[in-house]
Amino acid sequence: MAIWTSNNLACVNLWSTLYIMKQHKKTFKKAEKLKMKELLFFNPLLTEDELKFEAAGIADFLDIVFKNTYGGKYEDGIDKAKAVNHLVDTLIEGDKTMADLAAAVDDDYNF
């Protein structure tokens, strides 16, 4: 798990982008333990397929912002497909936290 600190750009850029996307309203400090099921997209009444579809939209936008706005590059052996799938796998797990999602970002992107 990534250490949730403002010195880690994976954590900060993830938190900021999801804030802009209206997925949450938490400060950086409070967002560490925020669960995926508390984000705006996570409708518990959707089917598994529908939820994954929504998560794919979140992941695709995060991927583009990380690269275009914050200068992120993929780590060795990682491409868009792997990075986005990794994000989606975490996003659809309701009890995973922002720190877990930041770990996925930290694994796949270099800022």
Binding site: L9, V12, W15, S16, G71
Partner: peptide, 8 residues
């Protein structure tokens, strides 16, 4: 990146 750290 700096702005994000200020916001954080």
């Amino acid at each position: 990146n700096k702005i994000n750290q200020q916001l954080a």
